[in-house]
């Protein structure tokens, strides 16, 4: 029905207008998140400074891993996290019903009527750190490898958005699902270190059921030419394909949840 190239800008425009009444709070939010991530990365760099390397990765390589992790996360999460964390609330208050009677894809409406511009601080920090680390690591860039790197990034962001969507969709059936985000952020925390420092069962888990290894470690290791456990030469292809694959699963799950939506329960 609705033409997406008109509706999406209209939704984003309306949402931003509704938020910019409090610009001070927004800027403080950016700064405070920038500070928190900066502080965490400083802590990690202190360990690297004392010990030289972590799992065979030196500081510039770890910095690339951290910045890729943060960039993929903020790109994916700006499309999903806050919107789907509010899903519980939307279901409980019945606002979800009002969204379901609009002649537009529900996912599109939820995502773009809440497109989060609060990740600006993350993105600035991630781009800065990535820019620096790319000049320090030993990679010869070609147009092909540059495009591949962008493809990894898109795929990684897709994993984030798809996983968040799945968790939010679960609220349609269970009413409560926000505790699952805590589990997501558990794996998210693991995903910013080299996978090879973890025990084998955890490595398998992070490459299969909780595929956040593809969010940063696998693509960055493939870029740096480092050996990837279990995947070996398949790392590059897997990094590219994992995002679309998780997205397909998320779409099926989303549909299933919409079909089994209960409202607030009668």
């Amino acid at each position: 029905m609705a033409r997406l190239h008109v509706v999406i800008p209209a939704l984003v425009h309306t949402f931003i207008r509704s938020k910019t009444e409090y610009p001070g709070a927004m800027v403080l939010g950016w700064l405070s998140q920038f500070a928190a991530y900066g502080s965490m990365y400083t802590a990690i760099s202190l360990i690297l400074a004392r010990f030289g390397s972590l799992g065979g990765w030196v500081w510039p390589e770890i910095a690339l891993l951290l910045s890729f992790h943060l960039l993929a996360y903020s790109l994916g999460a700006s499309l999903s996290f806050v919107q789907f964390r509010e899903m519980e609330e939307k279901v409980r208050m019945g606002t979800m019903d009002a969204i379901l009677v609009k002649p537009i894809s529900t996912w599109t409406y939820v995502v773009f009527s809440g497109l989060n511009i609060g990740y600006a601080g993350h993105i600035v920090l991630a781009l800065g750190l990535m820019g620096w680390s790319l000049t320090q690591v030993d990679v010869t860039w070609t147009i092909q490898s540059g495009l591949l790197f962008l493809g990894y990034l898109v795929s990684a962001a897709m994993i984030v958005a798809a996983t968040m969507t799945m968790i939010g969709a679960t609220a349609l059936v269970w009413v409560k699902s926000n505790h699952l985000y805590q589990i997501f952020f558990g794996f998210w925390e693991l995903a910013r270190y080299p996978l090879n420092i973890f025990p084998l069962p955890l490595q398998i888990l992070m490459l299969t059921f909780a595929p956040l290894a593809f969010m940063a470690y696998v693509p960055v290791a493939a870029t740096l030419g480092k050996p990837v456990p279990l995947l070996g030469d398949w790392a590059s292809a897997a990094a590219l394909l994992s995002g679309p694959l998780v997205t397909l699963i998320a779409m099926a799950h989303w549909r299933w949840c919409l079909r089994n939506y209960q409202g607030a329960g009668g």
Binding site: V7, T14, S18, K19, G94, A98, V101
Partner: peptide
Amino acid sequence: IGVVFGQRSQLWWDLPVRDSFDLNRHIYD
């Protein structure tokens, strides 16, 4: 169809009424 829920608003709380109408113009084409 058109749907009105008495107890939950479909209007954007922080924006003028007209903005919600305008958004609907795009959504309903």
